[in-house]
Each structure stands twice: as C-alpha cells, then as structure tokens.
Design a protein around this nucleic acid. Structure first.
Lengths: 211, 211, 211, 211
DNA sequence: GATGAATGAGATTTCATTCAT
DNA sequence: GATGAATGAAATCTCATTCAT
C-alpha cells in the first residue's frame, strides 16, 4: 500500500529505460570509444534517440555518467582494499583492477587521458579516487615496500600509462598489460633507487580549473 | 654555372605552401589530435581548402605524411645512438627523445596507439623503428644493464605508456613525463627481479597483416 | 471501430514530407536529369537536406526509388493491356504510354539508357518489364500484325529511341514524339520486309551480370 | 626562306598542342561523355591544364569545337552523297555514317540530344546539316522511295533515336544499331502508309532562340 | 605561350540536438 | 514520458577556372 502511494506515475518504464540505456552506453563506449554516435547507443538500448536525450541532456552528460560509474567501481575497489593486511599486495590488486578496466574500455581511456573530455563531476570523482589511492599508497610506503616519493596520484596516472603501453597490441595479445603492470610495479618497488627527477603530480582535479 | 641560374618552374610558391601546410598540419595535429578538420589546417596554413587536397590527396595521406616525418626523426635519433659507447645511457636518451616527441603531439599518440589509423607506410616505419630499437636494446642487455627479457618492441611500446602516464597533467606540469620515464627505466633495469609474467610483444607491424 | 480511432504515431508529417520529397525528386529528376543535386531536391520539397537523407540513405537510393516508381507504372500499364482484345492496338497503346513517360522525364531516360546508373532493383524491374512486354509482343506477332523477328526487348529499347528522336525539339514541339512513334510502328508492322540484319537484343538485365 | 618570314614566333608548339588537345578531347568526350573533367583531357593530351584554357576559353567552348568537328564530318559526308545516283541508297549510307558516329561517341549524343548543351555555333552547324540532309531526303522522296511527309530534319533527328535504341545494349552487342537502322528505314520507306500524325519538326536551330 | 598551383563554390553525407505528435 | 522525424552545421573531397612564374 504505502509503496504505491509514494510513486504515482508510470515511473517503471523510465527506470527500466534508464537501466537499458546505461548498459548500452557502457558497452558502446567501451567497444567504440567516445566517438560512437548517440543513434548507435539508442539502437543498442532498443529505445528511440529522443529517449536518450530525455535521460541525459547531452552526449557529454551521458559520457560523464558512464565514466562516473566506472570511476565509482574503481573507488569502491580501492576502498575495499584499504582493509587488506598486506598493503603492497593490495596496491597491486588495485592497479590490476584499474588497468583491467581500462583495457576493456576505449572511451574510459580517452576520457581519463584527455582533460578536455572531463566534466567537473568526473574530475571530482578522479580526485576522490586519487584521495583513497593516496591512503592505499601511503600504507604500502609505510611498509617500506615502495619508494618514498611515490604518491597516490602517481599510481592513478600509472594506470593509464600501463594500459597505453599495451594498447597497440591489445587485439593480438589481450593479456599483455599484465607484463607492463609488473614492469611498472618493479619500478615502484625499486626502493634503493635515487630520487625521481620531477616533483610528484599535483592533485588531479586541478588540471583544468574551469570545470 | 649556367645550369644553376635557370631554376625551371614556379615551384617557389608551392614549396613555400607545402612547408606552411606541413607546419600547420604538424601543429594542428599535435594540438588537436587526428580529428582536427582539413579546413582548420588550411586556415592555419593560410591557404584555401583546395590547396590542402592538391598537396595531399586525402586527410589520411596528410596524417600519414606528418606521422612518417615524426617517426623518421625518431628512427634517425635511434640510429645515431647506436654509435654511443654507453648503451644504457643511449637507450635512456632514445626513450627521452621518444617520449618528448609524444608529449608534444596528440595525433602522433593517437596514430601510434591505434592500428586502425596506421597506413601501411606508417606500419612499415614503426617496424623499422622497432628493428633499430631492438639493436639498441640488445646492446644494453649485453652490458647487463637491463633485464634479460626486455625486447625492443617493449621499449617502443613503453614510449606511449610513459607519455600517457603524464598526459592527463601535461597542461600544468609539462615536464612530468621525465618522472615517469625514470620510473619505467628503473623497472627496466631491475635486473634481479623475477621474470615478467607475459611473453614479450610480437613485432609491431604484425598487428594488422593487411598493410 | 475503436482500432481505427487510435492512429499511433506522428507519422502524418513524415508521410507528408515523404510525399513532398518524392514529388520534388520526381520533378527535379524529370526536369534536370540525374545530376540535379540533393540540395535542390530538398529545397523544392521545402525540407532540410538532412531530411532527404533520412528518407533515402543516398542519392543513388532516391534515384532508384523514383525510377522504380516509373517502371512500375509502365509494368502496370503493360499488364493491363495484356487483357485487350486487339493485341496490335494494345502494343501501340503500351508504346504510347512508355514514350510519353520518357518524354516527360530526363533522368528516367538517362537511367534507362545507361546501365551504370541502374541499381540491381532497377535492373530487375527492367527485366520484369521486358518479360511482360515479351508476352504483349508475342500476341501481336501471332495476330500477324508485326514482323516475326521482333522481340519484347526490341520494343522496350524502341521506347527510348523514339523518345530520343523527339527529344531535341521537345521544348518547342512537345507532342512530336507521336510522329516518331507512328513511324517506328510502321517499321514494326512492315511484315513483308526482309529479315532484320542483326540478331535480336539479349534480355535486358544481362547487360551487367553483377546486379 | 619565305616560310620563315611569315611566321615569326614559336607558333609551331601552339599548333602542335592544339592538335594534341583536340585529339585528346575527342577521345575523352567520346569515351566518357560531357562530364569528363578538363584535367583528364589535359592529361590525355600531355599538356598542362592552363594550356587547355589558353586554347579554349571554357569547357563549353572545347566541347563546342569537338562537336562542330564531328558535325562537319557528317555534313561533308552528306555533301558527298548528294552526288550519288541512287538517292535512297545514299540516304541509307548517310544514316549509317551518322548512327555509327553517335555509337562511338558518348558526348556527341549528349550534346545533340540536349539543346542546353548546344552553343549557337553548334546549333548553326546542326541547321547546316539539316539543310543538306533536306536535299538528300528530297531526292529520295522524288525517286518515290520514301514517304512524302518525311523531311531532312526528321532524318537528322532519327539518327539520335536509332542510336539511343541501341545504346542500352551497346556494351554487349556493339553492332545492334544496324538492326534498328534497318527498322527505321523500313518505317521511312513504308510509302503506302497513312500520313504521320504530327506535322514535321521545325528546322533544328529554332529549338532555343537564345543562342 | 606554357605551366601547374591556388582558388573557392558546391556536392554528398553524418550526427547531435530539438520538437511535434 | 516516449518517439523518431526534422534540422542544419560541419566534414571530406572535386573541379572549372584564374594567375603568378
């Protein structure tokens, strides 16, 4: 009884369409990158183009929503790993999850790697991600497992770099990112090396102060 | 004597325009990426749209020409460094040159990172690059300076990865790629580490056997 | 009853635009030939250029649709005349209808006369036309009214020829094709003449076996 | 000696180029029709595009020149046949020559069949052709070989019509125009037929009084 | 006089977005 | 709220013609 009273209209369809739409957009952006057309997304969702624009005012908005969803997954993953005993292994697991996500999603890479594609929401989420990764990294640092001068932002940036290293051969060697993740990890854990030549990166959302 | 006096045709303008055009295209692709329009390039060069198409029959051709020019610079750089005494330092210098070039050029990254944008000429040039880098890498390996299981193709792929690591903050910290280059280099030189978890990448031109 | 009341969608406008578009295209192709631009057609229909492409995916498609419509009219005409008592008079009527249609339509002539402009649909329709005209012709032949060695394909080809004879003066003497139709008909009915010097034409769709 | 005195400049090249150009244009128009590009013609002639425009101020002019040349051949042919004893056979030979020329030349057909492509020069030449064919026809008529109501203009128009009848199958049956020439000729010589239904065509140049 | 580079109008086509139904 | 037709800006590319060399 009480349920019906609070939701008067035919909201069910809308909720369902939104779900379909997000699923289709997630897939389409992942496969085709940010240049996939709104028409293609509508078609994959089995709805009309107008419906896409009712749910997301512009392509930019839709892309932001999808990207945020992925970033939130990554943030959740990092948060869960904060509880782990072995901080170094936790960091490796986080990076594995992150690169794996990038490897499977063309648009996500494009957005994360190009500030001009980032809405302010996305930038905020990236900052949140950087914050939690900062903690994850600090714990590993404190265990003496990684270099002193590595920050959480370094780690976040490395996700994109490791993915990109593998990207040109992803079609023929889809798992090769694991090789470059290990290589990068070896760089991170080279604790007796001399200090790195450039100060750590600024916090990520500062990249473009307009948003 | 008399031969030099009679420069034959009205080539002066064309040469000048071609130079302007290549300059404009190099800049425009570098700043805006491969999606910049031919009209924008024409405008930057100060010529009419038709002139662009007289010099380069299609956008694809123009992009290939610009990309080849950059790849040739890189190949030249690698060839020169083959003469160096310290192979490890030579490798580091080559990687520095490569990442620096990528850092300055959005389209170059896009082309190098996406096989579908590569003409057969470009693929051949990438293969040539991989070949000479293979030698450069072998020499460093023989000096015992880098891991046994690192190939030249790994090194070429790493250029894109290092660049990408820095790309999101390039606007505010344009030199930060040096940090990630060092980090990657430390990974390469971790000679006492366990073997990397995935076999080395295939030679690069094999990505798409059509070219 | 109630079913008829609920016309489902906003189809009214589309149907109207499609009609306008087909009308405009029919006219424009008829007046200007196949080289008329899609922009001109859009303008004549009073719609935007994009609308033309929503209804017909390419210029080729639009031209095919218009041509098919005319061919279907002709095929219908021929089919109806199969019922006539006087086969010779039926043949004359069919030819009258055919030449009249051509006389009014530049693009139709160009398409019918140039295999490279014919889509496979159009070629099939021409073949269907040739088939029914074959029957029409056979009946007239059996009545002893026309030469023994005249086929339906001859008759179809003659439509274009008769039209072309009149075309150069069509502007000033729009009905003169009737003169040349009669003249050709007299050629067809010259039953005591010697045999024609070249074997009959092949069936029409065989011109380009790709379709 | 005397030769050199009257032609001072380097006229030889120009004359040669003009000849090359006319040859190339004749071929190109014949094979490709009026839509062939000026660049293609220049290339076939082995000269630069600018040279084409020095000799012929516009594409229209070049097309007119080539068309006139062909019309003059036809006029010459008709004039020679005025001398023949058998006027009917002469008429048949003239028509054979005319249709053969059309069969070999796409642009010629297009120009002859479309008044809008005819310069005033071309229209005048067509009128001259009609005049001499008028005589040729009159002689055959006087021999009682062809219908009373056939004029020279009818005959000229028929050339295009006969050609067009065969055009759609010209690729696979290149000689089939002979069939339709014979058929048309049988129409012309059906002397006991009733009068044709439309008055004869006006003299040809009157089609478009603007030129 | 010949050259061929430059021009720029115009053609086809795509696609994010708006809006009538 | 959903639909999908309409819009129109923008992109690539072609070609007759002009003009500097």
């Amino acid at each position: 009884m009480s349920e019906r009273a609070t939701t008067p209209g035919p909201r069910a369809d809308m909720v369902r369409n939104r779900r379909l739409l997000i699923g289709a957009a997630t897939e389409a952006f992942a496969e085709c990158g940010v240049d996939v057309s709104m028409g293609e997304i509508a078609q994959r969702a089995g709805v009309a183009k107008g419906t896409v624009f009712r749910h997301f005012a512009s392509k930019e908005d839709l892309l932001a929503a999808i990207t945020l969803q992925l970033l939130d997954q990554l943030i959740g993953s990092a948060n869960r790993l904060l509880e782990a005993d072995d901080a170094t292994e936790a960091l490796r697991e986080f990076m594995t999850a992150g690169v794996e996500m990038l490897a499977a999603d063309r648009a996500f890479c494009e957005v994360v790697g190009r500030p001009s594609l980032q809405s302010s929401e996305v930038r905020k989420a990236i900052a949140r991600l950087a914050d939690v990764v900062e903690v994850l990294t600090a714990r590993a640092r404190e265990q003496g497992a990684i270099r002193n001068d590595i920050t959480g932002t370094d780690v976040v940036l490395l996700l994109g770099g490791i993915h990109q290293t593998a990207a040109p051969v992803l079609d023929t060697q889809p798992q090769i990112w694991r090789r470059y993740l290990e290589l990068a990890f070896d760089g991170l854990t080279t604790t007796n090396a001399r200090e790195l030549p450039h100060r750590p990166p600024d916090r990520l959302q500062l990249t473009d102060p307009l948003g």
